[in-house]
C-alpha cells in the first residue's frame, strides 16, 4: 500500500525547492538571456549560510517556535545575499563572451566551486547541523517543514512574478532580444546582467539553505550538476522560456512524475532498475520532443501588459462594441 501522506510530502518538498531554483533560472535565461549552466553553484553556496554562518544559533533556538522562524528568515536573507554576491561576481569577467562561450564558462566556474565545496578543501561542508530548526512542530515536524518550504517558495515566486512585470523586467526582456538597442536607449547592459544573475543565483541559494535545514546536513554531492543545473533547465523548457507561470506548471508536472516514479517504479517488472529507463531515457526523449514540436513550452511567454496597454485594449474593445 502506498503511503499517500509521504508521497504528498515528497512532491511538495521537491516542488518548493525546484520552484525556487527554476524560477530564478527563468529570470536569467528567459528574461535576461544569460545561458546559466552553473546553477548548481548558486544552490551549493546557499548552504554556506546555514553551516558556517548560522550553525551556532541553531542549537539555541531548538524547540522555540518564534525564535526558530526568526532564525529561518535570517538564514533565508543571508543565503540570498551570498547567492546574489556569488552570481554577480561570477558573471563579472564574462562581459565580452557570446552565448555558447558564456554557457561553457559558467559551467566551468560552477564545476570548480561545487567540486571545491564537495571536497571540503576550503570550507568544512558535509557536517551535521547543531540543531533542528523545525523541532518545535513536534509530531508534525515533517508536514510543517514541507509546508514552510512551499510557503517560502511561493512567496518568493510571487515576488519574482511581480518583479518580472515591472519596467526592470521589460528591460531584461529587451536585453535578451537585442543588447545593442538597450545600450542605445541609455541602459547599462552589464548592470542589468549582473542584477539578473544575482537575483537568479540568490533565489537558488535559498533552495540550498532550505535543503540543508531540512536534511540537517550541509553537503553537496557529485551529482549536483545533474540535479541542480540540468533538471531546472528541463523544467523551464517544459514550462516555457520567459514564462514564470509556465515554470510553476512545469515544476509541478516534473515533481509529480518524479514522485509517481519513485512510488510505482519499483512495482514495474523490468530486467534492469526502472530509473534508467524513466529518469534518463524517457526524460531525454520528452525534452527532445518538446524542443521539436513545442519549443515555446506548455505555457508560452505572453507580452507584458502594462497599464497603458491595458487601457488601450479596453478602449479598443469598447469601440468594437459600440460599432456593433
Amino acid at each position: 500500500m502506498v503511503n499517500i501522506v509521504s508521497l504528498l510530502e515528497y512532491i511538495g518538498y521537491w516542488f518548493g525547492l525546484y520552484l525556487l531554483v527554476s524560477s530564478g533560472l527563468n529570470i536569467e535565461v528567459g528574461y535576461a538571456g544569460i545561458p546559466d549552466f552553473g546553477k548548481a553553484m548558486s544552490y551549493a553556496v546557499g548552504m554556506l549560510a546555514v553551516y558556517p554562518l548560522w550553525n551556532w544559533a541553531l542549537a539555541y533556538v531548538q524547540g522555540n517556535a518564534a525564535l526558530s522562524i526568526l532564525l529561518l528568515i535570517a538564514i533565508i536573507v543571508t543565503s540570498f545575499v551570498i547567492g546574489f554576491a556569488v552570481g554577480a561576481v561570477s558573471i563579472l569577467p564574462a562581459a565580452r563572451l557570446k552565448e555558447d562561450y558564456l554557457a561553457m564558462y559558467l559551467l566551468g566556474i560552477a564545476e570548480i566551486t561545487v567540486y571545491l565545496l564537495y571536497l571540503r578543501v576550503f570550507t568544512p561542508l558535509g557536517v551535521t547541523l547543531s540543531g533542528d530548526i523545525f523541532a518545535w512542530a513536534g509530531r508534525y515536524e515533517d508536514a510543517v517543514s514541507v509546508i514552510i518550504v512551499i510557503v517560502v517558495a511561493l512567496a518568493i515566486f510571487y515576488l519574482l512574478y511581480r518583479l518580472s512585470n515591472t519596467p526592470f523586467g521589460r528591460v531584461l526582456k529587451a536585453l535578451r532580444e537585442n543588447e545593442l538597442v538597450v545600450q542605445t536607449l541609455g541602459r547599462n547592459v552589464m548592470t542589468y546582467r549582473i542584477i539578473a544573475m544575482g537575483i537568479g543565483s540568490g533565489v537558488a541559494a535559498i533552495a540550498g539553505a532550505l535543503n540543508a535545514l531540512y536534511l540537517q546536513e550541509a553537503a553537496i554531492g557529485v551529482m549536483a550538476r545533474l540535479y541542480w543545473t540540468f533538471i531546472p533547465w528541463l523544467i523551464i523548457l517544459l514550462g516555457g522560456l520567459g514564462s514564470l507561470i509556465g515554470t510553476l506548471v512545469g515544476t509541478l508536472i516534473y515533481v509529480i512524475i518524479r514522485g509517481l516514479i519513485r512510488v510505482y517504479g519499483p512495482l514495474i517488472q523490468l530486467p534492469f532498475p526502472p530509473n534508467y529507463l524513466f529518469l534518463w531515457v524517457m526524460f531525454g526523449i520528452v525534452i527532445i520532443i518538446i524542443l521539436l514540436f513545442r519549443p515555446e513550452g506548455i505555457l508560452p511567454e505572453k507580452p507584458i501588459l502594462t497599464k497603458p496597454m491595458k487601457r488601450l485594449r479596453k478602449q479598443k474593445e469598447k469601440e468594437r462594441k459600440e460599432s456593433k
Binding site: F230, L234, W280, G284, I287, L291
Partner: peptide
C-alpha cells in the same frame, strides 16, 4: 537531453 538518453 540526448546525453540523458545515451547515458540511460
Amino acid at each position: 537531453a540526448g546525453d540523458f538518453v545515451l547515458c540511460g
